[in-house]
Design a protein around this nucleic acid. Structure first.
Lengths: 400, 400
DNA sequence: GAGGATTGTAATTTCATGCAACATATTACG
DNA sequence: CGTAATATGTTGCATGAAATTACAATCCTC
């Protein structure tokens, strides 16, 4: 239904457009006076006032009361403005991650802050898609009051799967699912009004990692999440690049050369499994954990450092190749294995430089260590983002 | 100056927005009646009429006279609409490609069709940037009447160089340039009103190849241009992905494994130089041309086929790796070497499948054989695209 | 405490779109 | 061949949102 051409404009659509812009500006800035908003949107103060008046009666924004708590850092002359903020619990978004071993559920409010988070063990491959969705969605709704459900404005679902453009799961090898429409399954347990979105777990992670942090900056960002598997996502100016089959950014299966001459998948070299296998073999400690390994690297134990060097070389090669193609502004690493980064960041950049021609600019490589990352959070962010866009169904409801 | 937030809408901006949408729709559809336009833009017929009235007095569109020449293919009941079209020579855009050996100049009109094209030999490395720009721009303006210059709405410049985000040349190794602002140089010879844009030649080619053809479709398209060098560009939903340093899509320097175990640049294997060197060595004909080689491949001469096989394998590997990262909907090959594609397309796809895991979807690989490709054309298209967008300075002029 | 500066609000104006009605032009059908 | 049906283009009017202007309120500086 969404036209390719820019379909803007009608007398009332303008207001909707500006209200959305106002909400987005408030989301970014946390708090803004009416005059600030007018400047940010190139609007007249008068119009700005009308807009926030309408948003106030809608219950989405409010004047901040504890104005005094912010001691007016830039104390300029003139009457101070009253700060406006989003009402955090005006609406509610749920993000669900169905993994191979667990289900994680996250709730966020209009401000994007996490209101609740829960993880439970779950044997994914043992369940059908229908069972898993029923269990996950009903579980997510269980501790919600009727008023909460009234405020529910979106449910996002993240799974380790390959999706079609229409949102159906084409293939989820780790879960054994195939050709199922998770949206339709989930909608059975939700009010019809509530929008549902499904996304690949790596892509959802990328959205989440780029949504709250300071990486919200524009440009091209490559997110790489490293656990037992290695996935990734590309975010361009705050928008996810999905690609033709939702697989953009999946660098885990890039071929990289190894010492023995054979080419192997990146994820087979830098994934958690490979690292631990090597480390356990080297040390003989069959129960050694990632934390043990990290501690050894920090202490510069030779075996551990050698493994970290392999890791850095393989990852550096893959990232350098990727830079050739998308030329990112920054690369953000996440997942448990990424904790290696601060220990050998200089080796990684050295290997990247090495795999690249001299003079080719390289992006910064950052570690994402935020607590509220994870693809469940990202799935919730997707719907938060949708709500703060023209696709929001705050408008479709009006003809009632 | 361009805010990151969506700054739409004021009472008059709406009209500008809709006029632009109308021009874009007319550009895509070639001809549209007022009622067609109203449907395309979700507008009322009345508003549509007002808009094209305003565009008509501005001289940008007109009613088609030879209405009869189109024998009404879908003869439905009802009064037939009068078709509206863009006035091709209402405005003028110039694209200039400064290469290592030649300068190409292209003029296009509002409809995007090429009005004029000229190529002259030019020894790029022998000239400073200032000299080259002066020569190229003055040459491009030489055969223009004063009225033409009045209608000039943009000049695009394409060079084999690495650009900074602000449009200055960071480094142009083939030309020996460094740290020059080509826009500023070019503006000296142009009316101040005329916008100037500078772009990498591979990116400009990508824009041009995706602008007129049917590849104008949405989604992700990877364009690869293969001459002596191998460059490329990525177009997402009609917009160029530049990347942090304008180097996105430059797959020519990807490392690929070769038979002898050493990794080499893609462009050193599949570029024109490598192919001809191999072919000349194999056949002993030191003056053999690319056409000779292509003819031999078509005749299935064993030496030629073997070289083509190397080409297909290397290219297939690189494209497969690229698909892992950006998951394109389609790949379009251009440049003289791309003529190999139709001869061994099946081998290329076989190698791509081979370098990819089973089940991973692969995009179609197409050949761009259009006459009006080339980065000069693409550079002109950039300005055409800009004119049909909100950045157009049709609006900035008004306060006069 | 006076003056300057900035904010929020109200009244008025401007202007593009939507709506409804009508004249017009062509096809479909008896 | 004439009437009905259908679609287009135009006109006048209503609606609604933002710009403009003016004004009161609140704070800082001197």
């Amino acid at each position: 239904m969404k036209d390719t051409s820019l379909v803007a404009s009608s007398p009332r659509r303008i207001r909707q457009n500006n209200e959305i812009a106002a909400l987005q500006a408030l989301h970014r800035a946390k708090r803004l006076s009416r005059a600030d908003l007018a400047r940010a949107l190139n609007l007249n103060r008068s119009s700005s006032g009308h807009i926030i008046a309408e948003l106030t009666v809608a219950g989405l924004v409010r004047e901040m009361e504890d104005d005094r708590s912010f001691p007016r850092e830039h104390a300029r002359a003139g009457r101070p403005g009253v700060m406006i903020e989003l009402v955090p619990d005006a609406v509610l978004f749920i993000g669900i991650e169905i993994g191979v071993e667990h289900i994680t559920t996250v709730r966020i409010g209009l401000s994007g802050a996490v209101a609740h988070s829960r993880t439970e063990p779950f044997d994914g491959p043992a369940h059908s898609a229908a069972d898993a969705i029923r269990h996950a969605v009903k579980g997510a709704l269980a501790d919600l009051s009727p008023e909460d459900i009234e405020r529910l404005e979106g449910v996002g679902i993240s799974t380790p799967s390959q999706l079609r453009p229409d949102g159906t799961v084409h293939l989820a090898p780790l879960l054994g699912w195939k050709n199922v429409n998770l949206s339709d399954l989930a909608r059975q347990y939700l009010p019809g009004r509530v929008p549902v979105m499904v996304e690949n777990d790596a892509n959802a992670f990328a959205i989440g990692a780029g949504y709250s942090g300071l990486e919200m900056a524009g440009g091209v960002t490559l997110f790489v999440v490293m656990e037992s598997g290695v996935g990734g996502g590309i975010v361009i100016d705050g928008k996810l690049l999905r690609g033709a089959h939702g697989l953009a950014g999946e660098i885990g299966h890039m071929l990289i050369p190894t010492e023995d001459g054979a080419a192997r998948n990146l994820e087979e070299v830098v994934g958690l499994g490979s690292i631990l296998t090597l480390y356990r073999k080297q040390t003989g400690r069959r129960e050694a954990s990632l934390e043990d390994f990290l501690a050894d690297v920090e202490d510069r134990a030779p075996e551990a450092v050698a493994i970290a060097e392999i890791w850095a070389k393989a990852l550096g090669h893959a990232l350098a190749q990727t830079c050739r193609i998308i030329d990112p502004d920054r690369i953000v690493l996440g997942g448990s294995v990424a904790k290696l980064l601060p220990l050998i960041a200089s080796r990684l950049t050295a290997h990247m430089k090495n795999a690249q021609e001299p003079g080719f600019p390289l992006p910064v490589v950052l570690l994402n260590a935020e607590a509220n990352s994870g693809s469940a959070y990202g799935a919730a962010c997707m719907l938060h983002q949708r709500y703060l866009s023209l696709e929001s169904n705050r408008f479709a409801d009006e003809p009632a």
